[in-house]
Design a protein around this nucleic acid. Structure first.
Lengths: 132, 132
DNA sequence: CGGTATCCATGGAGATACTG
DNA sequence: CAGTATCTCCATGGATACCG
């Protein structure tokens, strides 16, 4: 079996509300890459190209099914390029495209924010949870 | 009934993988605000403070239940401040905190990226879907 | 007005087994 | 090696009704 439309849309949250995306593009991006694995894959591929099983080994707890789904989705958007080497056994390499590398720029800014505010947020949560 | 821990954690994707967050802070942020509504609420509150039902009316398709969950989660993290006016009937206002406004900075960068690449990604998807 | 409690359907995602 | 197919579970989140 090849890649079916249902496979590719399976991981999307819901019947994507188009006007919401239009009114708020950020929301669209977040729903697109805000799952458990996508960002992690992007970060790994930003370091260097990876083989399929290399990615699988690098990410504890990620099933092959979800890895495939995640990679296909990224490939569909043109954020990741998939290259097959017709060797025996076959080898497949994944790497970021120019578009994908571009996404990592604002993502890095977000990462910086997360690192800077992590302890602050942790305190806020503890404080909130301790409230009557 | 007051706010229970289960209510607040209910919307989190899963038993939050702590070491993943540590190894990749971006992933943590995304899992935190990558749901359907959080970013939308943040954007609305960035325009000006809103009352509860004002937010509810502004967002088509958002149930009161999810609005409350979303707001509580943001309040817990200290991204949003909740102020009760002891009037009759009671009024509650939500506004961004300094921390919350800070988050909107990298979020804007991401938004710019999304706007700039939207058509490109749409083309990529159409192209991918048209492949044999 | 600003929530909360409960019930329930849906679909996201893990486990497992199979294939070119 | 690099996937795919199927089954299954349960958390996410909508609908509805009630409350201070």
């Amino acid at each position: 079996m090849s890649v079916t439309p249902s496979m590719l849309t399976a991981r999307l949250p819901a019947p994507v509300p188009l006007d919401e995306q239009a009114s708020c593009p950020v929301s669209g991006v977040f729903q697109r890459i805000g799952d458990r694995w996508t960002v992690l894959v992007l970060v790994l591929l930003n370091q260097r190209p990876h083989r399929y099983n290399e990615l699988h080994r690098a990410m504890e707890g990620l099933s092959r099914r979800m890895l495939t789904l995640t990679l296909r989705s990224l490939e569909r958007d043109g954020l990741v390029a998939r290259t097959v080497f017709p060797t025996v056994p076959p080898g497949v390499e994944y790497e970021l495209t120019e578009l994908g590398r571009g996404l990592l720029v604002p993502l890095s800014a977000l990462s910086d924010w997360a690192v800077h505010t992590a302890s602050r947020i942790e305190r806020n949560r503890a404080e909130f949870d301790a409230r009557p």
